[in-house]
Nucleic acid binder design. Sequence first.
DNA 1: CCTCTAGATTGACAGATCTCGAAACAGAGG
DNA 2: CCTCTGTTTCGAGATCTGTCAATCTAGAGG
Lengths: 123, 123
Amino acid sequence: MSKQKELPLLEAETSAPCCEPLAEHSISTADAIALAPAFKSLGDPIRLQLLSQIASAPEGETCVCDLNVGFDVSGPTISHHLKVLREAGLIEGERRGTWVYYTAVRERMSALAGLLVTGPAAV
Amino acid sequence: MSKQKELPLLEAETSAPCCEPLAEHSISTADAIALAPAFKSLGDPIRLQLLSQIASAPEGETCVCDLNVGFDVSGPTISHHLKVLREAGLIEGERRGTWVYYTAVRERMSALAGLLVTGPAAV
DNA sequence: CCTCTAGATTGACAGATCTCGAAACAGAGG
DNA sequence: CCTCTGTTTCGAGATCTGTCAATCTAGAGG
């Protein structure tokens, strides 16, 4: 509970797992520790659906009021999952008046995808 | 209460979230339940490192005896993490004589990557 | 200023996960 | 057959996670 408050993913250029595939060469322990929380945040069905719903919104943003419908969990639980996704850097929230709107951070999603892909160059 | 006990990932190819990006359109609850365990299996630093080490092996396979070095956890723990990765369909193990060799399942890794990628057309 | 609604936070509890030591299993070799 | 080494499986304990009820905060509108 002391090392996944940080999101050094974007700033990981020090050892730089931003776009370098996992399969390129073995990643360091530090990189693994930095990256694991992001994947872990995707490891819950509700969060996966939330991210998908936010990322697939036509306007690019989704109101939390729209997210509450369609999930059979309570409001606080949705809020909790949104917080996890927020801390993983996968979404960002903005309050406009009464409602809160969330947008997906495409770069972060692509960065994670880049880690898993065997590589377009490898094909 | 409990909706994450199953791991029907291997048969998730029937409802086919194989390469369709999350951000294309909102995924179903069933697909989310099928996919989440795969991401969850990547949500541990040790498993991330194990997969990276296996996938980046020059010969395409890695002996468990080589995996034991470099990790400060016990043998059974390594074996447990390998089992999780195996059940997630990310690696496959083969016993040859005394030793067991693991290979990475590239298609599965690419499939997960395809879910996260924003898409070349969507940029 | 007061009230009302939308979200977020807190506290608590059941269930899952990580980790290890001990034991079991699989081959190789004597 | 017996033993030895490498790997997996089997409990068990400590920690983490998902969920909800209750409470709190931010802004809108009277």
